[in-house]
């Protein structure tokens, strides 16, 4: 496989009549992680949404493993958790498995919840959990078998997490990198200790 996991060329992107990127190139190989940094409004989130296909106003080419991006090849964790507050953590994760067409045993749900330290909270509606616990439910998606996709796009994965939570997420990320995945993430915090990590500044020049 000579194709990079993620290959962006000549990206030009606007939002609200303002040019965010011009002649932007980015290449991410398997087992590489790239941290996007930059001031608020620099376009970090917009870049992730462009890649995920949720911001169509761009020109240029974005390819995943040499072909146009398809939603089942990536995992996107955005500002919105993707977790329904009225449902329990277990129900939410089960739905995420179903969305990806997972046919294996449901035991992976409790395994994922155990991994993020939410044993005992499986059947509690998520809106009754604390903000940090809710964040952990969202991040438990990273521990599901359906997360074994070539590319992770994580928008601020470390917000609202304590030190243990931070360790947990970087552990999951390291595991995915070891499994041959690529990760593109944004954060304002200092970068966690990950193998194959590099940093890219956006919007700093202008």
């Amino acid at each position: 496989m000579s194709h990079a996991v993620l290959d962006i060329r000549d990206l030009r992107c606007e939002r609200d009549d303002r040019e965010l990127f011009a002649d932007f190139d980015l290449r991410l190989e398997a087992a590489q992680a790239l941290q996007l940094r930059g001031p608020n409004g620099a376009g970090k989130t917009t870049l992730l949404r462009c890649i995920a296909g949720m911001h169509p106003e761009y020109e240029g080419s974005i390819r995943l493993l040499g072909v146009p991006v398809s939603g089942d090849q990536l995992l996107f964790v955005g500002h919105r958790p993707g977790i329904s507050g009225l449902l329990s953590a277990a129900d939410n994760l089960r739905w995420h498995l179903d969305l990806a067409g997972w046919r294996g045993s449901g035991g992976v749900v409790s395994a994922a919840l155990e991994r993020v330290g939410l044993i005992g909270y499986e059947e509690v509606p998520c809106q009754q959990l604390s903000a940090g616990q809710q964040r952990r439910v969202a991040l438990a998606r990273l521990a599901l078998p359906t997360a074994e996709v070539p590319l992770w796009l994580l928008d601020e994965p470390f917000t609202a997490l304590d030190d243990a939570g931070l360790q947990l997420v970087s552990g999951l990320m390291a595991q995915r990198l070891a499994g041959g995945g690529a990760i593109l993430f944004t954060t304002h915090q200092p970068a966690p200790d990950l193998p194959g990590l590099s940093t890219r500044w956006i919007g700093a020049a202008s």
Partner: peptide, 22 residues
């Protein structure tokens, strides 16, 4: 609306193939 606000709608649109079924 609620699905949009909590982000489950974007997960559905992104991940479900085909989107027709859900």
């Amino acid at each position: 609306r609620r699905d949009r606000d909590d982000g489950t709608l974007e997960q559905m649109v992104l991940r479900a193939q085909p989107l027709y079924l859900p």
